[in-house]
Design a protein around this nucleic acid. Structure first.
Lengths: 131, 131
DNA sequence: CATGTGTACTAGTTATCATAGTACACACAG
DNA sequence: CTGTGTGTACTATGATAACTAGTACACATG
């Protein structure tokens, strides 16, 4: 299965589902048109409530990652339209600043941080090839 | 003031204080030995409860960012010893992966993402010089 | 009609965050 | 010693979010 959930994590379960699906799409595990499990199926598989899955699906639909068709099921959306691009860009920059601050408190050089990012990016690329 | 707090934000107020202090230290606005406002002073200034400030201070002490001396006050710690380096490194990497995925859903090229990070790093360096 | 979809609703539990008020232990200047 | 300023501890209360459980409804399809 391309989805794992940790009920003891601090991050909400529905959000873990959202991120899991987004990651699977980004990796190419899920492609446009692919059918997702029904809310009840996925809930059974992850041993969580079907309402929690439904909440995740609604969030994913809001993000234009999936398309929901009542009575038929949910599918990966054709084109991931970036709706609120500016807003997400600001958040991305903000996150990067947090990395810099965090790295500083880990006594990590800024150059080392940049190198780390390159490494993570490379590892992600490799992991993508293996699927 | 080097600290701002948004009570309507989704991120907890005490955590905003924690991040604010860490950022100020990283920028050099606060230096080792500097005295922080008392919990009641800062609470008054930010119009929040003094218990909330106390919670933030306790978290900062746990992170070895500040030193607390009962009856005297709180001070920026001498050397920011990275205690749980491995754990924080894993979290940092995890955060980077999340944003790689996010960038993909924004239809942003990986090279563009790397370039953006270089830009943010440069901007942060400039902002630091001005203080 | 029967089945499988997503959706909507109520109810209840648990946990976190924040406030408010009070009290205590310690350091230090007077 | 006393008064004041520290951080800390405690109880109580309210607000909100996340999750579970159960039930019911509307729609698509065979």
């Amino acid at each position: 299965m391309w989805l794992h959930v940790d009920p003891r994590s601090a991050v909400p379960v529905y959000q873990q589902v959202v991120e899991g699906v987004k990651a699977a799409v980004a990796r190419g595990v899920l492609k446009p048109g692919d059918k997702l499990p029904s809310v009840r199926e996925l809930a059974m598989e992850l041993t969580i409530n079907h309402n929690t899955v439904a909440k995740a699906y609604q969030e994913l639909e809001r993000l234009h990652v999936i398309e929901v068709i009542r009575g038929r099921g949910t599918f990966i959306a054709a084109e991931p339209v970036p709706a609120d691009r500016d807003h997400r860009m600001r958040e991305l920059k903000h996150a990067m600043v947090r990395w810099i601050v965090e790295a500083h408190h880990m006594q990590m050089d800024e150059e080392a941080l940049l190198e780390l990012f390159r490494t993570v990016l490379q590892e992600w690329r490799n992991g993508r090839e293996h699927e």
